[in-house]
Amino acid sequence: MPFPNVRLSNRPLHFIYLCDCSGSMAAQGKMQALNQAIRQSLPGMAEVARENPEARVLVRALRFADRAEWHLEQPTPVDHLQWRDLEAGGITAMGEALERLAGVLQSPPMEERALPPVLVLISDGQPTDDFETGLATLMRQPWAQKAVRLAIALGHDADLEVLQQFIGPEPPGGGRSPRRPLQASNATSLAQYIQWASTAVVGAASMPASQVQGATSGGNIPLPDLPPTVLDPTDDVGPLVW
């Protein structure tokens, strides 16, 4: 008798960018740098996806300015992804973006067997709408609780406090940590962080180890070390471009 022929499936890994497209992103080439960083990261992300066939990496992107809307709505396999440039203009409806995100992190449409999603919030400013309500709506979703939540702050005007709220409790002690907002002060460091999130983090999230019940101090999955940056994010001196 042959082995049962049932449908087997690798596990979907949803990777979602939440991109600030407010007017300030047009200044100093930030939007251009973000588009370029994401586009350049795709080959590496596709390579990591190929190396981890047990995970099916699916990318989406949500933009927020005056309103929040899907820039890339369909979960798209990374090797099929053609990045279309984001454009800047408007205010910062970050709270609405989190509410829109909450809608897709419900089960369904989230698959029972999905891996913890990776959510990357990128912003250069402060929310202009009700961020607290948006975050509360998001965090009511179990998949949001289980997600790997990262935040990248562009320049010195970014609201680090709200980005930290999105990530979750700040880890004790000082120093660099992926569980603090990653501060990108120029196009190079932004590209490094995007590359890290789309490769190292995706690799770690593709095959997460079991965690002991109640032990949440290490986050949802153990995150890889941050990349060395041209400018240490904890260092407040240096050539701050943005």
Partner: peptide, 16 residues
């Protein structure tokens, strides 16, 4: 279910 606050891939363990 260990609840929404449980970490991803969390499980009870003999080490608890």
């Amino acid at each position: 279910s260990l609840g929404a606050r449980a970490a991803a891939e969390a499980t009870a363990s003999l080490c608890l």
